[in-house]
Design a protein around this nucleic acid. Structure first.
Length: 439
RNA sequence: UCCUCGGUAGCUCAAUUGGCAGAGCAAUCGGCUGUUAACCGAUGGGUUGCAGGUUCGAGUCCUGCCCGAGGAGCCA
């Protein structure tokens, strides 16, 4: 019976077609592209795992099946049954010599054609753009990176302890927070960092990480910013700044080397230069802030000592090396209140930023945390922060305070770097930016 | 928030000094039994972002607004 897939036939995913050579299988997917020559048609079908060329010869199928194929359009959903055949002319090396095909739904005027499109158009059709092979590769690498992140911490005895997303107050002031009404309790805010809660969790479990979405209401409009992004934040009790840097470089090495090992086809689709990723191995260069400033001055930058590094400054520094570089001991003036000061030079913090190579900029920000009760109170006052919302945080210093450190890694910036992309908007399925919250 | 650039067919773009708004792709129809972003022929397709203004005449010049892109600041 034509037009209906035979339910007794083996269903196959396209990625595993090579296991079914010379066997009859059924694949279910969407028309990616079609080429027709009158009495023979080549239909490229994608099913999420790959793309397979289906060959429909007029003398090999029922006339009504051939006519259905004639009417197929891009992204129509189809079920195809046929023999898997090894053929070098087929993309991927295997094709399906169709015996039967049914159209589940014929798409009308699919907007994204296999031609060039502008950013605005593609972002407006993000829900469809995700079907294209380039976007497919990026999201699959994102998946692999997130897997590598969890694997790394899980294998090192870290416990996943997630921080809340709705919070009563800010970590660093309320100007950059999304605000919402919270029943009778007044305002609540979307978290801009899970860190303070991760510190509490670390005092309970020793080594923890939290991993979730983070929100910044900053009106940033650059290729490195989203208003909603994902961040993984490890926090470790009994760890100082050096321990923190050791952890960060081993972590990034693991992420990059895992992607190199497991995502080769996707990196190929993206035409990523692998020689830029292969050197990402320990040890990473470690630059004291003072040394970073020296490098900038040698490169002719008119840099004011004590300032934070700007995007252009980070690019200059990262281009000195073939792997990420760790800049530590930033001035306190440009860092958060909870960072511990260098006892020998109290104007500097025990902090570290990891700058990705090739000018991709900051992907990690971390520090040793202030663990002394009295000092922390002083920091709150210096920053004009109210004490009451931080009482629970101060408790961590009242009851068994220990040296502890941690950092946050931005997933989207990491994906952009690993994939070699121009902009972070393609590294998350549905980007939220200052001028876009749809689709 | 500030600076710079842009908005013309479904998409990507062109249109000389202010003088008939066009091409490629997509769509539709026809042809082709090994195509690789297939190819060949034909057809349809426009409130030139919006609102005013100047002019015999505005896609083009002027004013205001809307939308988008890149960057700065801030950050992951």
């Amino acid at each position: 019976m034509s037009g209906q897939a035979d339910s007794s036939v083996t269903k196959a995913r396209i990625e595993s077609l090579s296991n079914f050579n010379d066997q009859i299988v059924t694949i279910q997917g969407w028309v990616y592209n079609k080429r027709s020559s009158g009495k023979i048609q080549f239909i490229l079908v994608r099913d999420g795992s790959g793309i397979a060329q289906c060959v429909i010869a007029k003398n090999a199928v029922a006339p009504e099946v051939f006519s259905i194929c004639d009417s197929l359009t891009q992204e129509s959903s189809v079920t195809v049954t046929g023999k898997v055949h090894k053929d070098d002319r087929a993309p991927g090396g295997y094709e399906i010599q169709a015996e039967d095909l049914s159209a589940v739904q014929v798409a009308k005027d699919y907007p994204i054609t296999p031609k060039e499109h502008g950013v605005e158009f593609l972002m407006d059709h993000r829900h469809l753009w995700l079907r294209s092979s380039h976007q497919h590769a990026i999201i699959r690498i994102r998946h692999q990176i997130i897997k590598a992140v969890r694997e790394f911490f899980d294998n090192k005895g870290f416990i996943l302890v997630d921080s809340p997303i709705l919070t009563p107050a800010s970590v660093e002031g309320t100007s950059t927070l999304f605000e919402t009404e919270y029943f009778d309790l007044g305002k609540a805010y979307l978290t801009q960092s899970g860190q303070l809660y991760a510190e509490a969790s670390a005092m309970a479990f020793g080594k923890v990480y939290c991993f979730g979405p983070t929100f910044r209401a900053e009106k940033s409009k650059t290729r490195r910013h989203l208003t909603e992004f994902w961040m993984v934040e490890p926090e470790v009790a009994w760890a100082d700044l050096n321990d923190d840097m050791d952890l960060a470089e081993e972590f990034i090495e693991h992420i990059v080397q895992t992607v190199l090992m497991k995502s080769e086809p996707e990196l190929k689709v993206l035409e990523r230069d692998l020689t830029k990723l292969q050197p990402v191995k320990r040890p990473f260069p470690r630059l004291h802030y003072d040394e970073a400033v020296e490098i900038l001055k040698k490169n002719g930058v008119d840099f004011q000592y004590g300032n934070d590094l700007g995007g252009a400054d980070e690019t200059i520094i990262s281009q000195q090396y073939d792997r990420p570089v760790m800049v530590h001991h930033y001035p306190a003036a440009c860092k958060a209140f909870y960072m511990k000061r260098d006892p020998l030079r109290p104007e500097l913090t025990l902090s570290v930023d990891v700058l990705a190579s090739e000018g991709y900029g900051e992907i990690i920000g971390g520090s040793q945390r202030e663990d002394d009760y009295d000092t922390l109170i002083k920091r709150l006052e210096e920053n004009n922060l109210p004490r009451q919302p931080f009482e629970w945080y101060l408790d961590l210093r009242r009851y068994g305070s220990v040296p502890h450190s941690g950092f946050g890694l931005g997933i989207e910036r990491t994906v952009a770097w690993v994939c070699g992309l121009e902009h972070v908007r393609e590294t998350i399925p549905f980007a939220r930016m200052i001028y876009r919250n749809t689709p």
